[in-house]
Amino acid sequence: MNTTPAKVLIIEDEKQIRRFVRVAVEEEGCLVSEAETMSQGLIEAGSRKPDLLILDLGLPDGNGIDLIRDLRSWSDVPVLILSARSQENDKIDALDAGADDYLTKPFSVGELRARVRALLRRRSRSGEAASPVIEFGNVLVDMSRRLVTRDGEPVHLTPIEYRLLSALLAHPGKVLTQRNLLREIWGPSFIESSHYLRVYVGHLRQKLEDDPTQPTHLLTETGVGYRFQP
């Protein structure tokens, strides 16, 4: 664990939202800085080198998605998006551009803190040597030996199922868009064939989740993509 407090930058034009986000993030023991506009946000991000960026998609001076693209050219700091519900496409674009997670307005402080914790945990973890064994629920995945067991029993996964699982496990807590996963596992020509992805996620759930209809680890972000929740 890092002992220095994590630095969080909030880019949001609405003062009251900034205020409670700040309170919530400070409660997690972080140092918070704020920016009201996209241009100010980019300057702050460059000078303060935050460990997490909380970004409202609807900024007065530009599209938050452009900011993410710009940011991603020189930094891989985690980005949490704040967006309205009806903006599925914006969310997808933001995630494709490199954002890590999103919160739909309105959201509770509890949800916000949980997401912030999850994203910051990744920061602290990146320092350690990645463990080849990942555990969730009653499932153990040994990446080094390509071995998956559930309740100690080995589970047989097809090559694609295994690739999909490891893609999801590689980014715990991060929302992976359909396009992203399709491109990574099936290749660029399958980007429009989302039913492949859905069918295979279904297979994984059948094999790994206790109740495949109400999964607790391989989660669907409806209209957006998937998330692995450890």
């Binding site: 609405e14 009251q16 939202i17 205020r19 409670f20 986000v21 309170v23 919530a24 409660e27 609807g58 704040l82 309205a84 009806s86 307005k105 309105p106 959201f107 509770s108 402080v109 509890g110 916000l112």
Partner: peptide
């Protein structure tokens, strides 16, 4: 409308929550 209504609602939900902190 959706932006203008949601922004204050988001603030209200969050500010109410932050009273707990």
């Amino acid at each position: 409308l959706s932006h203008d209504l949601r922004t204050p609602l988001t603030a209200m939900v969050g500010l109410a929550d932050s009273l707990f902190l």
